[in-house]
Design a protein around this nucleic acid. Structure first.
Lengths: 240, 240
DNA sequence: ATTTGTGAAGGGTTTCACAGCG
DNA sequence: CGCTGTGAAACCCTTCACAAAT
């Protein structure tokens, strides 16, 4: 439907919410491809991805018209188109800073390599760990951070340090040109607007779950005063 | 120091987006309290939490009117109110299934205990790990999952297994009454509507960052013509 | 007959800007 | 005067429902 008769004009106007779901579709599609499926309908793909089919179609429509009416989507072709939309046709170099348990888990995670993310280096502040090898990767000392980032043209920094060092590490990453940061430390990082930060925060997720647990619990005990978070405890206690 | 004389009548209509931010405010407020700050304005708190002050005020307004005009918020009181809204005044029991590197990291994470989340058990499928201790917690075998969940009245299950076992573990958790699941395995879990699932997915986060990296790159370098997706190249070439 | 792609409607979230209160 | 709390406007996202395509 572009006004121009020529190319589809896919200017990057993909909504954030859609971008966040594309990796899920990609994963499901990859699994389908491996199981030998060549074609999938929006209903089928949506079910496997855990979203509604209308939403899925809307999402895909932002990339272009890659389905066939009456048939569905070609799995392999969709994989390619989503990969391209996400920028996965290029590859990205990553450093992981902080090689504790979490850092180890990340270094061993296969999902890095399988989507064009290459771990350039593991970095830790503890001299005793320097020289160790995790998953075939050498651990370097924090002093070398700047050198390593520039040498390998790192574009994504993963912070898996304790909260106390996270901001400093982040500052150093940003100072030597890293423009995307994935933060596992439980702290709000401050960065210039030009830098993207995403956070993964166990504690926050648990607290969100707690909120919903609470709602279920208060709703569940049925008969009288339903779902009042405040003084329900009094009522509940009295009822016991 | 309740402001109003009567009960504020907080109907549980807190928007999801707000719920997701409350834990961040809580963390910042806790840090402020520890540093001796007793009062904070919406501007100050918003800056520390990395959001706009209007958004912060809207968020807090959903809990009630706990600020003082012309002054700001009492740090300690706000901590309490947010904790209560999130349901953190009760405490929750958690099992962690899968004690690999990630499971170890989770078991060692201090953030569990500090907000009323108690780890009831670590569970692994590998008999060789059973009997080991991590952070003072015994590792039990997967066979005991149902027993442990019921015995400790577990309400939140954390899945840190490989993707291949995640759905099965999830089914078993749900079957014995767990109603909230935090999933670290790179797979879409299917559960009944009554169960809440939140996922933490490294690979997805990286891909979202990749998308934005790509956008920055294509915008930034004009002439060099490196790594430009598709027909943008035509435009770039024409512009040169 | 089946399934996509999409206007239009509906809901939710953010931002604005200011009234209201301390 | 300063800062909160909030209607109203703007924006974004989801859902609906159907025309268009094969």
């Amino acid at each position: 439907m572009p006004a121009t008769s020529a190319a589809p004009r896919r200017r990057s106007g993909i909504p954030e919410a859609t971008v966040a779901r594309l990796p899920v579709y990609l994963r499901v599609l990859t699994a389908l491809a491996e199981s030998g499926t060549t074609t999938v309908s929006s209903d089928g793909l949506a079910a496997a991805a855990g979203v509604g089919s209308a939403k899925l179609r809307k999402d895909l429509s932002h990339l272009g018209s890659y389905g066939t009416r009456g048939v569905g989507y070609d799995v392999e072709y969709l994989v390619y188109q989503i990969s391209r939309a996400l920028g996965l046709t290029q590859h990205y170099t990553v450093v992981i800073v902080g090689v504790g348990n979490l850092g180890h888990a990340l270094a061993n995670y296969a999902g890095f390599a399988t989507r064009g993310f290459q771990i350039a280096a593991l970095i830790d502040a503890d001299h005793r760990r320097v020289g160790e090898t995790v998953n075939g990767l050498d651990i370097h000392h924090l002093d070398e951070l700047e050198t390593l980032v520039k040498e390998h043209e790192v574009s994504i920094g993963v912070i898996a340090t304790p909260a106390t060092s996270a901001q400093e590490v982040c500052d150093r990453l940003v100072a030597c040109g890293v423009t995307s940061v994935l933060n596992f430390a439980p702290i709000v990082l401050s960065v210039p607007d030009s830098v993207d930060v995403r956070k993964v925060d166990l504690s926050i997720e648990l607290q969100i779950l707690a909120f919903h647990e609470q709602r279920k619990a208060t709703g569940a005990l049925g008969a009288a005063g339903v779902a009042v978070p405040d003084e329900v405890r009094t009522v509940a206690a009295a009822a016991t």
